[in-house]
């Protein structure tokens, strides 16, 4: 520092090249940092803070209430129900998205003509927002399928699958798989292409059957892709909101712990409704913090489990 000042007096540049570089780096970061602070960090910190208050969303002063909102969240039957439904949805969704994506990726990496068109085609549902596509599916489930069901005399299909509490989860998994499998497929395609041909050929020469080659060679060598795909599907399913809104908006009503609850309301929608429909901001914030903690724990467990299974070629 002193050295710099002396040099300044001597008429040479103020800063040593190292601190000058540091300053340049910082200036480059500044706009991003300000935006990041304003839009991500401040709302995040305040969000946690307000979950301990009785804040109602208006500017009015709020007082600290400790863990009251958290207690209320765990006593809210609708919230618990949403929690269980979200867990169920997440498990089903992770399985179907990844199985479908993996099967398709095997098909489109085989030596067939037109595989690029297939790859692009399966990806397209991912391009257009979940809300528009969700509304189209809603039309298919509530209008088209019942018409087909009635003409074929199938009793399960003749009523909308969306109003039946036993089938509504299935419709959401279907739509989400349809929308998301193409993206995950691309990751698997990339991984399959990354496996060296000679390894697969050596196995074939050694007499390993197709199934064995997939199970014993491809899948272990693709472990890295599985880690990423499972992480993406886990967080995506857990945060599911727009397909939920577009398809069912939470309905139909069903009974849970002797209380009526919204049968297909997932966590994100439940939190949104708490905060904005029932105007209970503080409770909504507390639910969001619980949501955040649970999702973080799950994804850390998932990633570290998957990482432990990864092998080098």
């Amino acid at each position: 520092m002193q050295h710099g000042a002396l040099r300044f007096l001597g008429g040479v540049p103020v800063m040593s090249s190292k601190s000058k570089r540091k300053l340049t780096e910082f200036l480059f970061l500044l706009p991003t940092l300000i935006a990041f602070l304003m839009v991500i960090i401040i709302p995040f910190i305040f969000g946690i803070y307000y979950s301990f208050t009785d804040w109602q969303g208006t500017g009015a002063a709020s007082k600290m209430v400790g863990f009251e909102n958290y207690v209320a969240a765990f006593q809210d039957v609708g919230f618990l129900h949403s929690f269980l439904k979200t867990l169920l949805f997440t498990v089903l969704n992770i399985v179907t998205v990844n199985v479908v994506a993996f099967i398709i990726s095997l098909l489109v990496t085989s030596e067939i003509r037109g595989r690029n068109i297939y790859r692009a085609g399966f990806f397209v549902p991912n391009l257009i927002g979940g809300i528009v596509l969700g509304l189209v599916w809603q039309f298919i489930f509530s209008n088209i399928l019942p018409t087909i069901g009635q003409s074929l005399g199938l009793s399960t299909l003749s009523k909308s699958l969306l109003t039946n509490k036993d089938t509504v989860m299935f419709t959401m998994v279907t739509v989400n798989t349809w929308q998301y499998a193409g993206y995950i497929m691309l990751i698997y395609v990339a991984a399959i292409q990354g496996i060296s041909k000679s390894v697969m050929e050596a196995a074939e020469v050694d007499g390993a059957r197709y199934w064995t080659r997939i199970m014993k060679i491809q899948i272990p060598l693709m472990a890295n892709a599985f880690t990423i795909s499972l992480f993406l599907t886990l967080t995506n399913s857990f945060k599911m909101y727009d397909v939920n809104v577009a398809l069912t908006n939470g309905g139909p009503v069903s009974m849970f712990m002797n209380k009526p609850v919204q049968g297909s309301e997932l966590l994100a929608l439940n939190i949104y409704q708490t905060a904005f429909k029932y105007n209970n901001m503080a409770l909504g914030q507390a639910k969001a913090v619980i949501f955040f903690i649970v999702l973080t724990i799950f994804s850390i467990i998932q990633v570290s489990y998957n990482k432990s299974k990864e092998v080098e070629a």
Binding site: V39, I40, P43, F44, G47, T235, I271, A288, F292, L295
Partner: peptide
């Protein structure tokens, strides 16, 4: 941080 449900920072945002 990406795990935090975006909609909850929405009120303050």
């Amino acid at each position: 941080l990406g795990m935090f449900p975006g909609m909850l920072s929405m009120i303050i945002l």
